[in-house]
Nucleic acid binder design. Structure first.
Lengths: 166, 166
DNA sequence: CTTGGAAAGTCAACAAGGCTGACGTAAATT
DNA sequence: AATTTACGTCAGCCTTGTTGACTTTCCAAG
């Protein structure tokens, strides 16, 4: 993968023009990425923020509010509002910590898990179609570039989730 | 989930687990993607909505309001609010159409172009680092998967931009 | 043991930026 | 002449971000 003369085998993929295409691709793709769950959420009284909370509680059952905060990157007040409605509606259960009573441990109820499945099914359908259309090699590249784009802090969070150590 | 003899060289990359990783990668990467411009915008009185308008006006100088609307996928009221402040602040110029006087053609002023450069420079720095780290093959896969994720309508918009026919 | 601070969570109020609906105007099209 | 199109605007609503102030709980230093 290395080459003669200067530094690069054709660094043409690093031109401003190529980068611009990548930037626009991210913009348009993200719209598609969120479109299907958004449609489901629209019917209910929920929004994208609720989806994110549900997703990560599902991923890491028993996680604390603080933990969730650092993953979502919003203020606790903002998260709290979302969490409150989810708890009121019986989708999320909040248990006072055994060891540290200041902490609240979060779990999806059966009803919450049901909505989670519905949302992630919808999102996966599109994702699977895209993966299948692009093929395994492309998917690997896709993941590599995305990881390289993350802030270091978030990359660590992502990798922790990825490897199952919630 | 797969039948042995049939079509697939290991379709393991289509498992729910792999898809979930891709979904989370999109989430975390998009945060990084917008982080640098957001920091710049924060200082000024602008937000992400202004950035998007500026970006696409820069990309397609002379584009009409309607055109921009269909690319951004927001309502005209929403866009108008953003556009109004940009025009008031002298970053964007709106010229009445020559052929069709109902239309307004949008252009960046020198000042607008200056901000655009600042914003896209910041965004490109990260993008370039990610591309370089991942390599050209990964970048190609990245773009392929993103394109496959887009809604068909948006994909058409994206390809039109990509090919320069604004 | 007490006390002072830090940490987790809650409440209140505000802002950005989406949205819908209604309306006005000028220009183009039928 | 009537209708449609492109654009702008006013009013009001919702979601989801923000900051500031407050309570409860925990822990560590005196």
């Amino acid at each position: 993968m290395r080459e003669p003369g200067a530094g690069g085998e054709s660094l043409l993929f690093l031109t401003d023009e190529q980068l611009r295409k990548g930037i626009e691709a991210m913009f348009f793709a993200y719209r598609g990425f969120t479109a299907d769950p958004d449609r489901i959420l629209d019917g209910l009284d929920y929004g994208r923020a609720h989806h994110r909370a549900i997703h990560f509680i599902h991923r890491s059952p028993g996680t604390t509010v603080n933990n969730l905060l650092s993953i979502l990157g919003v203020t606790k007040q903002s998260l709290n509002r979302v969490l409150r409605t989810l708890i009121e509606d019986g989708l999320v259960e909040s248990r006072v910590g055994k060891r540290d009573k200041r902490e609240r441990h979060l779990f999806l109820t059966a009803k919450g898990a049901e909505l989670e499945r519905q949302l992630s099914d919808a999102q996966r359908v599109r994702m699977r179609a895209a993966y299948r259309a692009a093929g395994p090699a492309a998917v690997q590249g896709f993941r590599q570039v995305l990881e390289a784009m993350m802030d270091p802090d978030l990359r660590r969070q992502y990798q922790a989730l990825k490897e199952g150590r919630a």
